[in-house]
Design a protein around this nucleic acid. Structure first.
Length: 408
DNA sequence: GCTCCACAGGAACCCGAGGGGG
DNA sequence: CCCCCTCGGGTTCCTGTGGAGC
């Protein structure tokens, strides 16, 4: 007989560890909040808003603080009847050009049914539509663009928006842009004219230090987890791991949440260090699988080529040898091989994703080159691709080779 | 101390699939 | 119908690199 039973020996309110949870109080970011408020002050005073650029790694509170302050600002502004403030927030993660961001903004502002399609128009046409929508709203408009770095170097919108008023594109509307970026190199690569305007006010969110992370974890754990269900030193351990890796509160909270789930599944009464260890390797695994799922067919073939070399205990090995392996795999799967340059691109993508690691070889007259090897367990690399490629027999061979050579 | 290997990675371009709009 | 737009993934061509060996 099957039966569901409520388990509540670990969690009291697990949601408090989720990304979407909004805590009442934001911990350890007092200085940044103060600076941020100062940058937003002109809105309350009725002047043209500052453009603000926020940067810092993922999980250091940029988005949380922005959401909190913009909400606060709207509330506080509403008590002055001569001020009209609208806030538009957009996450640009999946939008990789100014064009797409502009389309998305227009569609955000338009009622359902009147949206525009995401291709087809000349860029300026889309900008014009955007200005029309903004002008129709009037007052002060703050546009918060989260993960803005994903537009890469196609940053025309960031040039246009802050200048819209000066260029006569907008009459009655004052626009302020808040750009949020995970990548502080993004700032450098921006057109200098964009830097001038967009980065009028810059606020940097530094990574959290271990003690700060521990405070954050403590305050969340109080809400999320049953009293006494955390063993001594576990929070400290989570904080230390996250601080060493990324300084991200997101990561620290994920670790704690997953460790809790593992503890629960093992029917333990409290979360132990060992659960955190397991949680860490699981999260790492998930991250890698995520990366592999999004590979293009040739990206997969390139990875499989490395896996194949690895099965024969021939890694680390250089790009040239991977390429020949890749070509034979292409032939067996009946697809046209790409040029060496393209495979080289795939290898470097895989390196960025942390799936491959590369060591530089400087051998003078015999050239400089990278030696690649798998940076993930052999089995997870092969597993992740087995279902997609029409290479079952080849993959079997690779597996058998691996078994003989005892590769894992 | 100069040369030069053999790769890394940037730049410019190409192509076909998405979709305008007159 | 024709010519316009963007975009992703691909090419082609090219320059930069650092120390072993002359």
């Amino acid at each position: 007989m099957h039966r569901f039973e409520r388990k509540q020996n670990i969690f009291r309110n697990k949601d408090a560890l989720n990304e979407s949870y909004q805590p009442d109080r934001i911990e350890e970011r007092d200085e940044e909040i103060e600076e941020y408020m100062e940058a937003l002050q002109p809105v309350v005073d009725g002047w043209e808003p500052n453009n603000i650029f926020i940067y810092g790694n993922t999980g250091v509170g940029k988005t949380a603080v922005t959401d909190y302050l913009l909400e606060r600002l709207q509330k506080d502004v509403s008590s002055y009847d001569d001020l009209e403030l609208s806030v538009i927030s957009l996450n640009c993660k999946t939008l990789n050009s100014s064009y797409q961001v502009a389309v998305e903004l227009v569609n955000e502002l338009r009622p359902t049914g009147r949206e525009i399609s995401s291709t087809g128009y000349p860029q300026q046409t889309v900008f014009k539509k955007l200005y029309e929508e903004l002008e129709a709203i009037g007052g002060t408009i703050l546009i918060a663009l989260d993960e803005i770095d994903s537009i890469g170097d196609r940053d025309e919108l960031l040039y246009e928006l802050p200048r819209a008023r000066a260029n006569g594109k907008l009459e009655s509307t004052k626009v302020g842009v808040v750009g949020i970026s995970n990548d502080f190199k993004f700032r450098e690569q921006l057109d200098p004219r964009v830097q001038d305007t967009l980065c009028e006010r810059e606020i940097q969110f530094p990574p959290y230090e271990a003690p700060e992370l521990e405070n954050i974890l403590e305050s969340r754990a109080e809400i999320a987890i049953v009293d006494g269900a955390i063993e001594q030193g576990v929070l400290n351990f989570c904080a230390a791991l996250a601080a060493r890796d990324s300084g991200s509160a997101r990561q620290a909270l994920d670790l704690l949440r997953l460790a809790g789930e593992i503890a629960e599944n093992r029917e333990a009464n409290h979360i132990e260090r060992a659960h955190v260890e397991t949680a860490r390797s699981q999260l790492e695994q998930e991250r890698v699988e995520e990366g592999m799922r999004e590979l293009t067919p040739h990206g997969r073939l390139a990875l499989l080529a490395v896996a194949s070399r690895s099965a024969k205990e021939e890694t680390p090995c250089r790009g040239r040898d991977i390429y020949t392996e890749y070509v034979t795999l292409c032939e067996s799967s009946g697809s046209e091989p790409l040029t060496q340059r393209s495979v080289h691109n795939h290898l470097s993508d895989l390196r960025m994703l942390g799936i491959l690691s590369a060591s530089e070889n400087r051998s003078g007259s015999r050239g400089n080159y990278y030696s690649y090897e798998l940076d993930v367990p052999f089995s997870s690399a092969v597993e992740a691709m087995a279902d997609v490629l029409r290479l079952d027999s080849e993959i079997d061979t690779i597996r058998r080779m691996a078994a003989i050579n005892d590769v894992v």
